[in-house]
Design a protein around this nucleic acid. Structure first.
Lengths: 205, 205
DNA sequence: TATTTTACTAAACATTGTTTAGTAAAAATT
DNA sequence: AATTTTTACTAAACAATGTTTAGTAAAATA
């Protein structure tokens, strides 16, 4: 039956249209100012229509958060894929991580700080955060390679990955939420980079 | 003139009453559910009264955030004050930091994650985050002592402090905002503690 | 052609933060 | 002591939000 197929396709396209509208508004104006009403207006539908495609705002923002992760992982993978030495790769990916977070603060916020997407997971009953797992696995695999190549005096891939992720996220999220007022704003990017070097240097034997 | 003095005192007491109401509500129900109306109801005044003592919600939350920092700094200072060796002190303070964040998630969120208090700083024209400076100085002084005692192979007190604060905040804020779904929830506290040990161990020669 | 289903919307609802206009009591002034 | 001014407060309104309800015109099916 061709009609049901077309309808299903249209349903997905409509979902995508809403997600794109939300994402654009998000990038232009940030989370607080991205309202259901304004998204609806931008795509020229009524606010109620959005609720035919998403259970609530959290679920819509979960979908946007998935898109953001796609971009993020592609970027990190692209940066690392041609670097043979795992330590060099880890280093470059760390640099890229900081860079991505600083240049795409709204996206990063949505991915790692805002409650909305995780709230949606809870509401759906699922507790599996697929995007988080995939990104973290990319880190863990690289760390494991470094361990295998004998770069670290430590062997526990989980503790090392946990620590690396934490320090990267700490730096960037403190910057995004404006908690680095102890340093002049211009100094923050270089402080983050130096701090990242410090972590990488400390990790080696 | 005794009347003006009494009035000034009453003004301060009223402010304190509002702050306490907000803090209690905050601790019981979290940020999202702490509304001006409910705070007003709790202290048995009208919502409009709150606006006679605070410019807006951000400013009220800045005041609550100051109280939180008071508690936080007292706790950290108390933990460290009797430990002579700066490295041991740093270690214990790290442990206390994680503990405080995990046991007082709403307060920690207000201090280091929520936009509201920093927003208030911006609106007031000031860009000096007094509470942040004081807490960070406590860390820096301890790090400086460690450097002086030759515990670290690194000398830059700012880079080291930046890195330590980042990794502690990274762990705790990812936990609070539910981004550690790669590990079972029961494992998070021990992962944070182990990760903190790792940082402390790495820092040493 | 008649009926059912689909895709959509206008309007309403309940909650927010915040402002405005007014009032009774307290303080100052005469 | 009487009058005026100031203070401390509030009821009610406003504007913006997420979300739901009741209804409608078009499309699909019978």
């Amino acid at each position: 039956m061709g009609i049901t197929e077309r309808k299903e396709r249209e349903k997905l396209e409509m979902r995508q249209l809403i997600i794109k509208g939300a994402m654009d508004m998000f990038l232009e104006e940030g989370f607080d100012k991205t309202t259901i009403r304004k998204i609806a207006q931008r795509i020229e539908y009524s606010p109620a229509t959005i609720y035919l495609y998403f259970k609530n705002k959290d679920e819509l923002f979960y979908a946007v958060h998935e898109e953001a992760f796609q971009i993020f992982r592609d970027y990190l993978y692209h940066v690392g894929k041609d670097i043979a030495d795992p330590m060099d790769r880890l280093h470059m990916m760390g640099k890229a991580y900081i860079n991505f977070a600083y240049e795409n603060q709204e996206l990063y916020d949505l991915m790692f700080i805002l409650r909305a997407p995780m709230q949606s997971l809870v509401e759906c009953g699922t507790d599996e955060w697929d995007e988080g797992h995939k990104a973290y696995d990319l880190l863990k695999r690289t760390v494991q390679e470094c361990i295998n190549n004998g770069y670290f005096p430590y062997k526990d891939v989980d503790h090392i990955s946990f620590m690396i992720f934490s320090s990267m996220h700490g730096m960037t999220s403190l910057a995004i939420r404006e908690r680095w007022k102890m340093y002049p704003e211009e100094a923050i990017p270089s402080m983050m980079e130096e701090s990242m070097h410090l972590v990488m240097d400390m990790l080696r034997k």
